[in-house]
Design a protein around this nucleic acid. Structure first.
Lengths: 206, 206
DNA sequence: AAGTTCGGCAAACACTTGTTTACTGAATGG
DNA sequence: CCATTCAGTAAACAAGTGTTTGCCGAACTT
């Protein structure tokens, strides 16, 4: 890659980082082009060399945010071990991931039902892809014998939703700087996942 | 109430309605005082006769939105019937409520993790109160014998979260005008709730 | 070495914004 | 009936907004 492209990428990164930073305490719809460029150390007009819209910047942030999440999902699903270990590991990984990628997670939580349709749809599509992946992983487990594809899919969605909720809860606890609350969330998340997997084992068709 | 107060209430309503309407496709943080007063047919300065802030208007909307939800929760919990009937009724009521109070639900979903702290906290506090109520109702059921208060509380939170997620899903389906998707959500919600209540019946302490 | 591409800038465009001010005029209460 | 309260107004404030324009100069291409 030429020095040309490299510098452009650098500016793009500056814009993305500045945007993500500003989205710490406001939402995409209330973000301004000038605000972002100012924080990135660029002129307002420079923004348009990279994105047509602020919505486009938002979509780029979604892709970035969920790429790192994708790695996480794979790592959890790939690991071996019984249901208990898997649940414990899942919750640990969520907690750690929220800690390490705080801004990204906050952004996702905020914009999942936020005011910018394109971004909402991008997030939803990506979450759907996660559900597919979980679905495939569940199908491989012996417990899923006799399950219809539809039921399996709904189970996968339940798990994904639970993970998302847990991540959002961790987020608020970490922002509040309340370690006790964080512990309680971890306990609660494990309990809830165990309850679901228990229901799963006793399920017999619908 | 004097005619004075009555007219003031009317203006207040106009502001709240205008705000709720505008929040259909933007979030509270990006809403403007002038925007609201313009939509309400008032002068900008009039706004400050009713609210100090837009955040205050947001909190007022939260209270309003969750008051109607409160009625709903009570009606569901009060009804008799087995677990199956309760679940079916729950899902039906959610779907209907989202249909009837679309703007309020959309507002809640959007601002639950939105950019205005006061509003976020108001919503969280109210959802916590719902969990308490569900908690109390669960405690009365025979199935809860031998459950610790902590476990029961976590179960209640799981149910509330499930309901919230389902409501959000209905919301998007209705906005997309996709009846098929709506049906799938109803089926999925029933399945997931049944799975949880199945796990609950087979749970034995933690 | 000459020519072209193109990321970034400053400046200007016409608005919109939140909030305060001094005011009006109808409902209120003595 | 007269004084007071007070919801609502118009006007002004300084400051911010998104986007386009023409231009510069360094990095590319040939």
């Amino acid at each position: 890659m030429g020095a040309r492209q490299a510098q452009k990428q650098q500016s793009r990164r500056a814009l993305l980082d500045a945007g993500l930073g500003l989205l710490a305490d406001q939402n995409l719809a209330s973000l301004g082009v000038r605000e972002v460029t100012r924080a990135a150390g660029l002129s307002p007009a420079a923004f348009y060399r990279h994105f047509p819209d602020l919505a486009a910047l938002g979509v780029a942030l979604v892709e970035e945010s969920l790429a790192s999440l994708h790695v996480l999902v794979r790592s959890v699903l790939a690991g071996a071990g019984g249901a208990e270990e898997l649940i414990d590991r899942t919750v640990d990984v969520i907690e750690q991931h929220v800690r390490e990628h705080h801004p990204h997670v906050r952004f996702l939580a905020r914009e999942r039902h936020g005011g910018v349709r394109q971004v909402r749809e991008a997030i939803d599509a990506e979450l759907g892809r996660f559900a597919e992946e979980v679905d495939a992983a569940l199908a491989l487990q012996p417990v899923s014998r006799g399950w219809s594809p539809e039921d399996l899919r709904m189970l996968a969605e339940l798990y994904v939703d639970r993970v998302v909720s847990t991540a959002a809860a961790f987020l608020e606890a970490q922002e509040a700087g309340d370690p006790g609350r964080e512990r309680r969330i971890a306990v609660s998340a494990r309990f809830q996942l165990r309850l679901i997997s228990l229901g799963r084992r006793h399920w017999q068709g619908s």
